[in-house]
């Protein structure tokens, strides 16, 4: 009797929503840090986007200025747990774009910093790019986003509260 209650106390369906909360807050922290690092230097953020040389400078400036704010907004959505699945889907899409961008910079032999957490896309003289760790890190974040895409129901979320009201 006591054995059954013990095992049924920590089942996957019981644990998953709490694990999901951790994943959600982790991914939120990633976006909030990434956005906060860039929001103070929007021109630098535009230069970082331009450093990838995949779009005209004028377009890169718009993306560079908009991106930090979008990242912060995504972070806020994830912190409060509103529209978790949509936020996870957009996070995945953004991360896939970033991974594609870094891979393409690598493939074209560009020598840039990814600019992921600020620093304007430039490398200090004599510093070599670290594309592989940057991609590995983004894949790690992508795993978090994928978890929430598959299991968006998490504890301590507005989504769950909304569900309870109807």
């Amino acid at each position: 009797m006591s054995v059954t209650t013990l095992t049924s106390g920590v089942t996957w369906p019981g644990l998953r929503p709490w694990l999901g909360t951790l994943v959600r807050l982790g991914l939120a922290a990633v976006w909030l840090f990434a956005g906060a690092a860039k929001v103070g230097d929007l021109a630098g953020s535009g230069r970082a986007v331009n450093a990838y040389q995949v779009m005209p400078f004028e377009v890169a400036k718009v993306i560079g200025a908009a991106l930090p704010f979008v990242e912060i907004a995504l972070g806020v959505l994830l912190v409060v747990g509103l529209a978790t699945r949509a936020a996870a889907a957009i996070s995945s899409a953004l991360l896939l774009v970033f991974i594609a961008g870094i891979s393409s910079a690598w493939a074209r032999g560009l020598s840039i910093d990814c600019g992921c957490f600020g620093s304007g896309g430039q490398l200090a003289a004599g510093q070599s790019p670290s594309y592989a760790p940057e991609i590995a890190r983004d894949i790690g974040f992508l795993v978090l986003a994928a978890f929430l895409l598959v299991w968006p129901r998490t504890r301590l979320s507005i989504d769950r509260w909304l569900e309870g009201t109807t």
């Binding site: 200025a65 991106l67 704010f69 979008v70 959505l77 509103l82 909304l162």
Partner: peptide, 24 residues
Amino acid sequence: RTLWVSIAAVAILVIAGLIGWGVY
């Protein structure tokens, strides 16, 4: 409800991006 909440979330992100461009 999920549909509307998702649409609202996307709208929030679009507005955030526009704010960024405006600030710049």
